[in-house]
Computed example of a mutant assay.
Amino acid sequence: MATAQDHIEQVKQIVDAFNTGKEFPASLTDERLDYKDWGTGKASSTADEFMEYATEWFAAFSDMTFGNDDIIATDRACVHRWWMKATLTGDFSPFPLVSKGKRGSSVILHGSSTYEYDSDGKVVKCYEYYDMLSLLRQVGVEIP
């Protein structure tokens, strides 16, 4: 059974993969990954669907990088407080309003991800929370 420290290291591996363009460590997730992005409302039920969604983020924010504010874990769950820095460079199909923003706009976004693990230590749930309104304002979308 995986330990809390194992889960902290897994989160760091995921962040490193996103930041360096390495292939996502699929061995860390169950193929039936229950994923929800509360900022866009996007949900997926497999690891492949999640990776397709992540690709859409990188298409819109090609220089996107992540950092760790805090990672708190138990043997069954983990909370990751993170930050993201990026520049809007393309269209963002999951939330088209973002695409109305000004290309070249810099974004700093803070959020958190919660992970739940199965008995083999693989991620089976991941829910992400961040302030979509802040993202929209930073790319110059006027909110009435």
Rank of each mutant, 00 (worst) to 15 (best):
I71K: 00
G101K: 09
E31G: 11
Y53L: 03
T29W: 11
K102T: 12
L88D: 10
Y127Q: 15
F58G: 08
D6V: 11
F58E: 06
Y35W: 03
R32M: 11
Y115P: 00
V123T: 12
E9I: 01
D70H: 05
D63Y: 10
D37C: 06
A47I: 13
V98T: 00
W57C: 12
V141A: 04
T114M: 13
K22N: 12
D70M: 01
S93G: 07
K36N: 14
A60L: 04
L136S: 03
E9F: 02
S134K: 10
L109H: 04
V124G: 08
K122R: 15
R103A: 15
K122N: 04
T20A: 05
K42D: 08
Y130V: 10
K85F: 07
W38R: 15
T55G: 12
C78I: 11
D118S: 09
L133Q: 08
A26Y: 04
W38I: 12
I8K: 12
Q13H: 11
T87P: 09
S134D: 02
F92S: 01
Q10N: 15
T74V: 09
T29E: 12
E128C: 08
R137D: 06
W82E: 07
I108H: 14
K12R: 15
G41S: 03
E116Q: 14
A73Q: 05
V107G: 05
L88V: 06
D69F: 02
M1F: 01
A60S: 15
G140N: 12
V107K: 00
N68S: 10
A43L: 05
L135Y: 03
Y115W: 13
G39H: 02
D30T: 15
E31M: 08
H110I: 10
H80T: 03
A59P: 09
A54C: 08
D48K: 06
E9M: 06
A73L: 04
S134A: 13
M51H: 11
F92T: 01
S119N: 07
Y127E: 15
V139K: 00
K36H: 14
E128D: 11
G67T: 03
T3D: 08
E116Y: 10
Q13N: 12
M132T: 13
K85D: 15
H110L: 11
A59N: 14
L136C: 04
H7R: 10
K102M: 09
S27R: 11
T29D: 14
C78V: 12
T20C: 09
K125D: 02
L33N: 02
E116N: 09
S44Q: 05
Q5Y: 04
I72Y: 01
E52T: 03
K12I: 01
T3G: 03
P144R: 05
P144D: 08
S106W: 09
G104I: 13
A54V: 07
D75L: 07
I72L: 07
I143K: 02
F92E: 02
K12T: 01
R32S: 14
V11C: 07
